[in-house]
Design a protein around this nucleic acid. Structure first.
Lengths: 256, 256
DNA sequence: GACTCCAGTGAACAGATGTACACTGAACAG
DNA sequence: CTGTTCAGTGTACATCTGTTCACTGGAGTC
């Protein structure tokens, strides 16, 4: 138990970050072989990545809860006990996986935000859904992990995912607030709308992850449905608005 | 292995149904004690229910995949090996649980359908959401199980849930088709709309299941948000309609 | 009353699991 | 060159898992 505590103190992410502040000039001296030999920290980081990759790999068709430490270690090519050099428990590995997956998701958001799309909601919808589609296909494992653990999980992992997704929805609400004709909406309603959009997007992700080759439903069809769904929501929003404040009966940028 | 096969042949639901066709007059003769003594089939059914209840109980804060046969048996008050008298595997128990939960859900639908609500969508929304709320609170375990396994599970259990939910969504689409001003919608679009509604309802269920006492969010707030979400969707639908077929610009029954 | 059936028992198994412990050897610091 | 650090190894153990097998005793049948 004492040994475990020591491990958890020495092998955290925090540790790696701390170490970065130490003098690491010795790399020039140490890394002479070029490839076979590497600095100790490099090696450690590498097997850490192996562990994460191994876990993600095994998670392709199972829940995180059914993953055993030994299994992950074996697939990563290390002995079970060496696992503790990197994570104090499977839960910690899981949280790290959430962070990694969330990085993917955030990259997607940034990509969608900075995309050259005009002010029209219709353009935004098309671009957003296509961005989503592209990223889901490029990182299926991450998205699968996130959706699965969000609803299926229970431990610290599920909590971490839930928190991040709530944050995500809030950010979207802020984005929405920028739109001219949503200016008069209450924050509460904006959040409601953001949640609806996020929920709808999650459904799309699920659809994309569940298509089996030769299942009838193609990616194209799913994307089209997703766009329709969002257009439906936006139409509701527009109408809602004009109902509550007649002043905004002026033209909206082409909506659909 | 042979023994197992024999068990799975003898202990299915099918078996119980078959037995019903046999002469069961002997009950009059056998059940004399009144309560302590019971017919053999009654006893069996009772411990079967115990098994299902035990599993559902354990599933309160865990995934089905992390449930062990021994655990369930122990909580049901029987020895592990006796489990096989009722189910050939945990998966089979899981599927039975899906059926039981789905019965709850269908009861809810029927209750919502036959409720005295006028033709107005607004009334329907209010009644539906309140019906949902009531049933979720009355059978939290069932709803928790269904949502968790739908998204988190992987095995036959998850497949069973997915199938039932798809069916559910289809039924809703048929219901929607009855509305006057949706008559011109394509089946495809109706399904899209039904999916959106079901998805939104699922989100509501999740919200309801995740409130912790003293979490800020009350049941009332969740119900209100849920109603808003649905109203938003319906508004979108109404507008969509009037966009695609100008003929229907006539008055809709008061929508919100 | 004698015989069959079968839900539930209890001991036993092979395998997997998490984790403690003592170790090795190469990267590292002086 | 010398001593330290530490990622990774191998052994070991207690615990839990699914499943087998032979059994018991009471309900059900004739």
């Amino acid at each position: 138990m004492t040994a475990l505590a020591v491990n958890s103190e020495n092998c955290d992410v925090a540790d790696i970050e701390d170490v970065r502040t130490l003098p690491l000039v010795s790399t020039d001296q140490g890394a002479r072989g070029g490839e076979s030999t590497a600095t100790r920290r490099e090696r450690k980081e590498k097997t850490r990545q192996s562990l994460l990759a191994a876990a993600l790999d095994l998670l392709a068709d199972r829940g995180f809860a059914s993953l055993s430490l030994r299994e992950v270690a074996k697939r990563a090519g290390i002995v079970p006990t060496a696992f503790y050099r990197h994570f104090a428990s499977m839960d910690e590995l899981g949280v790290a996986l959430v962070e990694e997956s969330m990085r993917t998701l955030r990259t997607m958001i940034r990509s969608a935000r900075t995309d050259p799309s005009d002010e029209a909601f219709g353009g935004i919808i098309r671009v957003s859904v296509r961005t989503l589609h592209r990223h889901v296909r490029a990182h299926e494992d991450h998205f699968r992990f996130l959706t699965r653990e969000r609803y299926g999980g229970t431990g610290p992992v599920a909590r971490a995912v839930a928190m991040e997704l709530r944050l995500f929805s809030s950010e979207l609400a802020v984005d929405l607030a920028r739109f001219e004709f949503l200016r008069e909406w209450s924050t509460e309603d904006l959040h409601m709308m953001a949640d609806l959009i996020v929920t709808s997007m999650q459904a799309t992700v699920l659809d994309l992850l569940e298509v089996r080759p030769g299942d009838g439903a193609t990616d194209e069809a799913i994307v089209k449905t997703a766009e329709k769904r969002l257009r439906l929501i936006v139409l509701g929003v527009a109408n809602w608005q004009s109902k509550h404040s007649p002043a905004s009966d002026r033209e909206h940028p082409r909506l659909v």
